[in-house]
Nucleic acid binder design. Structure first.
Lengths: 190, 190
DNA sequence: TTAAAAAGTTGCATAAAGTGAAACAAATTT
DNA sequence: AAATTTGTTTCACTTTATGCAACTTTTTAA
């Protein structure tokens, strides 16, 4: 079952790169006979061997184990501006308004939000750190973005792409309400 | 090297679930001695064995192959509105203007763009499909978003989160230039 | 159409290495 | 300190991955 998926993937990638069994054999230091058996699912190669193959094919080894996920459902989810869904996000919520921009059920990577920063924001209290990856774009107003020990000034239209494991936080820097689009990715999910 | 990472991950997960080698042994139908050797990186188990372990641990097997990436560098990258870097993206480029919103070097998941849709856009020509995950937010103007056989109308502030393996394409639906923020994620990367 | 070359599969023999049982060592508990 | 549990290692065994070469199938060329 699993071996079958791996076998198919190897063959597909090999073909896509135009290699013959013999050529891949030389690249990986494995006999073409063995490669044939692997592609035909007659052996359960040790990871050391799989590793050789992934190197020869120049693909990350993880590729072999990524099960194709069927998104199920429709495959998309629209969120109209006026229908943004306010949500509670752990911790910070008390001070800021969060609105989710997605309603996809399945375990997607992208988590999009709109965050509103009110004018009357006190001094930065708690900073926020978490694994993954994050992207922020200022939609309205001005933001002072605290990242570790730095303060980065962002105006409307500016954006920042950063590693969120460093403590960080946005803060309104203008005299009107500010608004940001925030994309969070939780790498651990897969 | 690779085996070490896998070994460490197994041990970590086992510990996190509070299993002893013996318990996991019963769950996976493997001897505790063998499990010990695997965790200590003394053997290169065949994927069949790894599969048993992933089942016993109740985690997707792919988890063992997800390499932790060290972002290196500063950890963030700011892109000011006026300094967005125009880029060429395969295929479509001829008709649309793409601007990258990130300059992080390492292989990050998030790829942020701003796309400008000119007023004089002809009928939708080529659709665009690729693996991964995508999110789009209309920053300016109006967009008719073609997704498979559907046409979805999006106004400024609206957004859509979708599976990009279905052929898709945005198209200006107004009398002025339109602008979208697009986030693309290439799941294959890991 | 046939011959020749290349690509892929399969027997076979061997050597390597994964594996279990049990003895051993280390750590934790009573 | 004894006893129980958890983790490591020795040893023998056997499974099986692997290379080599013969064989079959497909493609190319003449």
């Amino acid at each position: 079952m699993l071996e079958k998926q791996i076998a198919d993937k190897i063959k597909k990638i090999r073909k896509s790169k135009g290699y013959t069994l013999d050529q891949l054999g030389r690249l990986t230091d494995l006999s073409k006979g063995l490669l044939s058996r692997i592609e035909n699912c007659q052996v359960s190669p040790p990871i050391a061997t799989l590793s050789k193959i992934s190197h020869g094919l120049e693909v990350p080894i993880g590729i072999f184990f990524n099960v194709e996920e069927t998104t199920g459902e429709e495959g998309y989810a629209v969120t109209l501006k006026n229908e943004r869904r306010p949500i509670n996000r752990r911790g910070i919520t008390a001070e800021l308004d969060y609105y989710s921009l997605s309603s996809l059920k399945s375990d997607n990577l992208i988590e999009p939000f709109v965050v509103k920063y009110p004018v009357t924001q006190k001094k930065p209290t708690k900073l926020y750190d978490h694994p993954g990856e994050e992207f922020l774009l200022v939609l309205k107003g001005k933001i002072n973005f605290i990242y570790g020990k730095k303060i980065i000034r962002l105006e409307t239209g500016d954006s920042i792409h950063f590693d969120p494991s460093t403590p960080h936080r946005g803060q309104n820097a203008g005299k009107t309400e500010s608004e940001c689009l925030v994309i969070v990715i939780d790498k651990e999910k897969e």
